[in-house]
Nucleic acid binder design. Structure first.
Length: 499
RNA sequence: GGCCCGUUCGUCUAGGGGUUAGGACGCAGGAUUUUCAUUCCUGUAACACGGGUUCGAUUCCCGUACGGGCUACCA
């Protein structure tokens, strides 16, 4: 039987970076096993639906390159893949479960139960309390039918039989045991006719022939209910294998990484930018911060999983090759932004100049620059070993696109003597008429000229650097000169003499 | 509170009954580069605690502590 896995997010806002990791692990597993990776949209909570969130999920998967084989927006013959489009299916199965004696109708309103919980701290709807509540187990069948026919609102609840252990064999955690007596009678079908996660997820996984469920640790406690559902439907022989992933924790302090942490620690926790209704609900993402998607993938892959060995940089193909569920850690992983930055730096360094140019182009255009493709590639080559984020190319390296805005006056004054000034006048003439404008030849010529006039490199080179870039930081002087071209180099040298 | 999961350097992790407990990020120092960065080298630093089991436990078992998750007609 071929492997089929699903990534099943809820469109309730921007997709959290932890969700991207879940998608990644599902993807890696599917690819490695020659299986199928499915995107299912779990939008059964109408009250939490956020327009644009579904598209955000799809855009994210496209950006990081985790393309589903089936799913909303990707086709497939096991659809529909959006749960709100499957409402009738769940209703049918929910009623079937009642027929089979594993579920029942309950008429208690949400408000009544809420009041009950306020009064009794540990109130639970379960085998101990259900006889005293308003449902088809406590009511006569005539009364139940009457209420149903009258159109009284109802939910369908799972009938949990007490007194037995439920064993789960988690691929990451090993055997986990729950006692059925401690489980509540979970709502399966809500009063609005929509299923809860529990029902929808079991019905869909069964119908979509899912073989492995790889999801967050927060689902582990309800997995016992899910097993009961598979049993109730008689689907135990095709029940998927479960793997519950560790959580991603805050960089410092306690608790799991939250969307607020982005602003708090000055780092992205979402893949893409998200424009919410208010500034507080709007977030920047890894993409607009200037991360390469490959770097994000590499970083995320190693946040909670490691194949052993000492390799750190993995291409997506290498990840697919090396991935295995049993090498996923059990403990939560702290979000390490410094490491994420390091990965990005590494990926930028290793990237093709042409690839980099395709990223720098739009960034440059946004600043009003209009460089040629060839020039962008030169900028990429010059700066790729000195940047962390993509925008650094046009920000730290702005002087490659426009005249120097600010000079390092301190160094300038230290080096600028009347003798040097005289030398500069001659140097400018020399450069202006220099024919073979390539870095090696220019360096050779300038150094030779310096020597002839009795100057040391340290007397002149810093000034050349300041003339071209304004700062003591940056690419090699003669490389910059060549990139800028003879005219511009001369112009900048002259500008320095007027300082 | 109840149920469940977890715990190796500051962080991500490898490892697993006998190891100098390995790598990476970060940090510190050095070399190269007349800049910065890159690169390279060196250093820093960990098996939560207490009991078992064992000739021997960081590794296996049980507790404790700490952390986390769940406990909705949310996912």
């Amino acid at each position: 039987m071929s492997v089929r896995v699903r990534f099943a997010p809820s469109p309730t806002g921007a997709l959290h970076i932890g969700g991207v990791r879940t998608a990644l692990y599902n993807y890696l597993f599917a690819r490695q096993q020659g299986g199928t990776f499915i995107l299912r949209i779990e939008d059964t909570d109408q009250t939490r639906y956020v327009p644009g969130a579904e598209q955000y999920i799809i855009d994210t998967l496209k950006w990081v390159g985790l393309l589903p084989d089936e799913g909303v927006g990707f086709g497939g013959d096991k659809g529909p893949y959006r749960q709100s489009d499957r409402k009738e299916i769940y209703q049918r199965y929910a009623h079937e479960l009642v027929q089979r004696g594993h579920a029942y109708y309950a008429f208690d309103s949400a408000e009544t139960l809420e009041k009950r919980r306020e009064a009794e701290e540990n109130f639970t709807y379960n085998h101990l309390t259900r006889q005293a509540l308003d449902n088809s187990l406590s009511l006569s069948s005539e009364e139940t039918d009457k209420r149903l026919k009258a159109g009284e609102p109802f939910v369908i609840r799972l009938k949990v039989m007490p007194g037995r252990p439920i064993h789960i064999n988690d691929l990451i955690r090993g055997e986990v045991v729950f006692q059925s007596s401690e489980l509540d009678d979970k709502v399966l079908l809500k009063a609005d006719g929509m299923p809860t996660y529990h029902l929808a997820n079991i019905v869909d996984d069964h119908l979509m022939e899912i073989t492995h469920v790889i999801r967050g640790e927060e689902w582990l406690p309800s997995t016992a209910h899910h097993v009961l559902l598979y049993e109730g439907f008689g689907w135990t022989d095709t029940m998927p294998r479960f793997s519950h992933l560790p959580l991603i924790l805050k960089p410092v302090g306690n608790g799991k990484l939250s969307k607020r942490d982005g602003a708090k620690f000055g780092m992205p926790v979402f893949p893409l930018e998200w424009n919410g209704a208010t500034p507080e609900e709007s977030f920047s993402g890894f993409r607009d911060t200037g991360f390469l998607p490959e770097a994000v993938i590499n970083f995320l892959a190693l946040l909670g999983w490691h194949p052993g060995g000492e390799q750190e940089i993995f291409s997506i193909d290498e990840l697919v090759q090396a991935f295995s569920v049993d090498h996923i850690s059990k403990g939560g992983a702290r979000f390490d932004y410094e490491k994420a930055k390091w990965f990005n730096q590494k990926y930028i360094q290793a990237a093709d100049n042409a690839v980099l140019a395709s990223y720098i182009g739009p960034l440059a255009a946004a600043k009003g620059y209009n460089p040629s493709e060839d020039y962008l590639q030169q900028v990429a080559a010059l700066m790729k070993e000195r940047v962390t984020f993509l925008p650094d190319f046009v920000e730290t390296g702005y002087y490659l696109f426009e005249p120097v805005r600010e000079y390092d006056r301190e160094t300038f004054q230290k080096k600028w003597t009347p003798a040097v000034a005289d030398f500069f006048a001659e140097l400018i003439k020399m450069v202006a008429t220099f024919d073979h404008f390539n870095a090696a030849a220019l360096e050779e010529a300038v150094k030779h000229f310096m020597q002839e006039k009795g100057f040391k490199p340290g007397d002149v080179l810093p000034l050349l650097r300041i003339a071209l870039a304004g700062t003591m930081k940056g690419p090699a002087v003669f490389d910059m000169a060549v990139a800028l071209g003879r005219e511009e180099t001369v112009r900048r040298l002259e500008a320095l003499t007027r300082l």
